[in-house]
Simulated assay, not measured.
Amino acid sequence: MRKVEVFSHNKNWKRMFSEEARKLKTIFGNEIVHIYHIGSTSVPELKAKPIIDILPVVGNIHIVDNHNEEMKNIGYESKGENGIPGRRYFQKGGDKRTHHVHIYQLGNYEIKRHLAFRDYLLVHPEVKKRYGQLKGRLAVKFPNDVESYISGKEQLVKEIEAKALEWYKGEE
C-alpha cells in the first residue's frame, strides 16, 4: 500500500531531476526536444510527496514505445497512456515511487497545462502556500488513502490550473 507523505521542499530534488534527465537523454537521444522538471518537487518552498515528475517532449510519441525495455533496465515500469491520450507514462520505485515520467509529443496541450501550473506557483507565493498547506492537511488526514488525498486536492488544483492557464497566455 502506498503511504501518503508530504515533506518540506528538499534542495536535492533538483539534483535528482538532473540525474534522471541525463539518463533519459541517453535512452532517447535527439528524440527529446525539451525536458522539464514539473510537479511539486519543481517548486521551491512547496510541500510535496518526494516523487520527481519529469516531462520529456519528443517529436514523435510513437518512437517512445521502442524504448520500453531500456526504461525497464533503469527501473521504470511502462504504463502506456495511463488514462491520458497521447502520453507515455512511466513509474519508478513501485509502491515507494521515486520518479514519474510523462512523455508528450511536441504541441500536446498537456505540456502547456503542466508548465503553466508550475510557473504560476513559482510567481504566486500566496497560492503556493495555500496549496502546500492543503497538501499537508490532506496527508495527515489520509495517510493510507492516496485516492482521498488526490480527490481532496482536486478542487483547488482545478482553480489554480484555470488561473494559471489564463495567466500563462500573457507569459508565452
Rank of each mutant, 00 (worst) to 15 (best):
N144H: 13
P56L: 02
V43C: 05
D145T: 03
E110C: 07
R137Q: 13
G152A: 01
K135Y: 02
K128W: 03
N144K: 15
V4G: 07
I27V: 02
I52T: 07
I27Q: 12
E126Q: 13
N68Q: 08
K49N: 06
A162T: 09
F142K: 07
D145G: 07
I150N: 12
V58H: 12
R87F: 03
V123T: 01
Q91E: 12
I32L: 01
M1K: 14
I103A: 14
I52C: 02
R113W: 05
I84S: 10
K11A: 14
A21V: 00
S148R: 14
W13Y: 13
N60C: 08
G94R: 02
E110G: 11
V101D: 02
R137F: 09
L24S: 06
L138K: 06
Q91V: 10
G80M: 02
I32W: 09
F90T: 08
K158D: 10
E147G: 10
F17K: 12
Y89I: 02
E159Q: 12
N30S: 11
T26R: 15
M1A: 07
P50E: 09
G107R: 06
L156V: 00
K3G: 10
L165I: 02
R137P: 10
G132Q: 04
Y76M: 02
L55V: 01
I32P: 14
E166Q: 15
S151I: 01
K112Y: 10
G86K: 05
E159H: 05
E154C: 08
P50F: 05
L138F: 04
K141S: 01
E45R: 14
K128A: 03
S151G: 08
Y36C: 06
E147C: 09
K128Y: 05
K153S: 06
E110Q: 12
F17G: 04
N10R: 15
H62V: 10
N82R: 08
K92H: 10
E19P: 11
R97G: 13
G136R: 10
L156S: 02
I61E: 02
K79Q: 04
V4Q: 15
T41P: 05
H100V: 05
E81C: 08
K129L: 07
F17A: 04
Y120R: 10
G136V: 03
M16V: 15
K79T: 04
G75K: 03
H114C: 05
L24E: 04
R2N: 12
N30F: 11
L115P: 05
I51T: 10
V57Q: 08
Q105T: 06
E166D: 13
E166K: 11
D145C: 08
P125Y: 01
A139T: 03
F7Y: 12
Q133A: 13
W167C: 04
E172C: 09
K169M: 11
K158T: 03
F142D: 04
I38T: 11
G83D: 03
N10C: 11
H9V: 00
R22V: 14
E126V: 12
